[in-house]
């Protein structure tokens, strides 16, 4: 491997960067308030929810919603994610979560609170999580998020 001088490595690193998908444009949580038209279809909600997921949740919960063993809980197939208790889900996003065993499994990482997300963004991302991978459950509305946020304050 002597012939692989550092500069060659660097060039390869740069080349590999160019082959990667274009960087996503950052959505500034506070400014990107997406106003949902009342009749907006589920498809639009899921697209918006996916955008929030990619930016805020993907790193830990992964593209397949499978999480990371012992570190980050899975969202795909999780009883809490598709469950009836939407308030619990909204609280998790607003307040974060740490040190709670889920199905007898412990997760070492800390989920930070995400109060900077708008009511609509939280509604969208939870609706997305409840209707992606193998999950199928009812939507979460911005009004539901607003109500929980008011309780927490």
């Amino acid at each position: 491997m002597k012939q692989l001088i550092p500069s060659l490595c660097l060039i390869l690193v740069l080349m590999s960067f160019q082959t990667q998908p274009k960087k996503q444009v950052l959505i500034k949580p506070k400014t990107a308030v997406v106003t949902a038209a009342p009749a907006a279809g589920m498809k639009a909600v899921l697209l918006r929810g996916k955008a929030v997921y990619l930016q805020q949740c993907l790193a830990c919960h992964q593209a397949d919603g499978g999480g990371v063993a012992h570190l980050n809980a899975p969202l795909n197939g999780a009883a809490a994610v598709v469950g009836k208790d939407k308030e619990k889900l909204i609280r998790i996003v607003l307040k974060g979560m740490k040190g709670v065993d889920i199905d007898d499994e412990s997760y070492n990482n800390t989920m930070a609170p995400h109060p900077e997300l708008t009511d609509q963004q939280i509604a969208d991302v939870l609706t997305y999580a409840r209707n992606s991978w193998t999950n199928k459950a009812s939507a979460v509305s911005a009004a539901e998020v607003k109500a929980v946020r008011a309780k927490i304050k």
Partner: peptide
């Protein structure tokens, strides 16, 4: 300082097969 760029191309990896041992 040594730069290691393992994350990159298979080219490096296949080269290592040729040279190793």
């Amino acid at each position: 300082k040594i730069i290691h760029c393992l994350s990159v191309t298979l080219a490096i990896i296949s080269l290592s097969y040729l040279t190793a041992g």
